[in-house]
Amino acid sequence: MGNNRYTYGIHTGLTPPELFFYVTLEEARRELGLTDLAAVAAILLGQADVPVSGKVAGATEGTSVASMVSRRVLPNRVAMRLPMITGVGLRGMKIAFTRNLGAWVGRTIPIVGEAFMAAEAFQILRQSIRAYNRLVQPADRVLG
């Protein structure tokens, strides 16, 4: 990166990293909307933070609001066992199987939310790099 200085909106004398920060903030503000609120709600409703007793050893402690509601609304059992992610950590993903449609939906809701948020983050980063590269000298460009 060069020693160039830039102006962006009301900000003057910005270094390339500072300019990239402000461009990214603007792109995030422009991109985030109702879908992101739904994704965040799905993630939060899928957190296993409601205490529950009677779980077997090794099971994830607690349950989520999404799981409780979906089990009530969809008490159906299906013929095939459906895979569901029950945990992600350093040792990898923990997968369990269920025939209870409500349990599967409850476990899937936060994963869908996380996928939407990951896609949004990718879009924001991609758009930020493009906008930043249009504003700066060739020596200060990111990824090309």
Rank of each mutant, 00 (worst) to 15 (best):
Val40Pro: 01
Ala41Phe: 07
Thr86Ile: 07
Gly102Val: 04
Ile111Val: 14
Ser70Cys: 10
Leu82Gly: 03
Val88Trp: 08
Leu90Lys: 13
Glu26Gln: 15
Gly87Arg: 00
Ser64Tyr: 00
Met117Cys: 06
Leu101Thr: 08
Ile85Leu: 11
Lys55Ile: 12
Arg30Phe: 09
Ser67Arg: 06
Arg91Leu: 05
Leu14Met: 07
Ala39Tyr: 01
Pro75Val: 03
Ala115Ser: 13
Tyr6Gly: 04
Gly102Asn: 04
Phe122Lys: 14
Arg71Glu: 14
Leu32Trp: 12
Asp49Val: 10
Arg81Thr: 08
Val50Gln: 13
Leu101Tyr: 06
Ala131Lys: 13
Pro110Asn: 06
Val50Trp: 11
Val78Asn: 11
Leu37Phe: 15
Arg5Gly: 06
Val112Trp: 00
Ile111Cys: 07
Pro75Gln: 05
Ala59Lys: 00
Arg107Gln: 14
Ala28His: 02
Gly113Val: 06
Ala39Glu: 06
Arg30Leu: 11
Arg91Glu: 07
Gly9Pro: 06
Gly58His: 00
Ser128His: 03
Lys94Gly: 12
Gly58Asp: 00
Asp36Phe: 02
Ala118Leu: 15
Gly113Tyr: 01
Gly62Asp: 03
Thr7His: 12
Gly102Phe: 01
Arg72Gly: 11
Leu90Met: 10
Pro16Thr: 02
Arg71Ala: 10
Arg130Phe: 06
Val78Phe: 07
Ala103His: 05
Ala79Cys: 03
Ala131Val: 08
Gly89Ala: 04
Leu44Asp: 03
Ala57Cys: 08
Val52His: 03
Gly58Leu: 01
Val40Ser: 05
Glu31Thr: 15
Asn100Asp: 07
Arg77Cys: 09
Arg91Lys: 15
Ser70Met: 08
Arg91His: 12
Leu74Tyr: 05
Gly54Asp: 10
Thr63Leu: 09
Ala28Lys: 02
Ile95Phe: 12
Leu37Gln: 11
Arg77His: 12
Leu45Gln: 01
Ala57Tyr: 10
Met93Leu: 15
Asn100His: 13
Ala115Cys: 14
Leu19Tyr: 05
Tyr22Ala: 09
Leu25Pro: 12
Gly102His: 03
Ser70Thr: 09
Leu82Pro: 03
Thr7Asp: 15
Gly46Ile: 01
Arg107Asn: 15
Leu44Arg: 05
Met84Ser: 13
Leu19Asn: 00
Val105Gln: 02
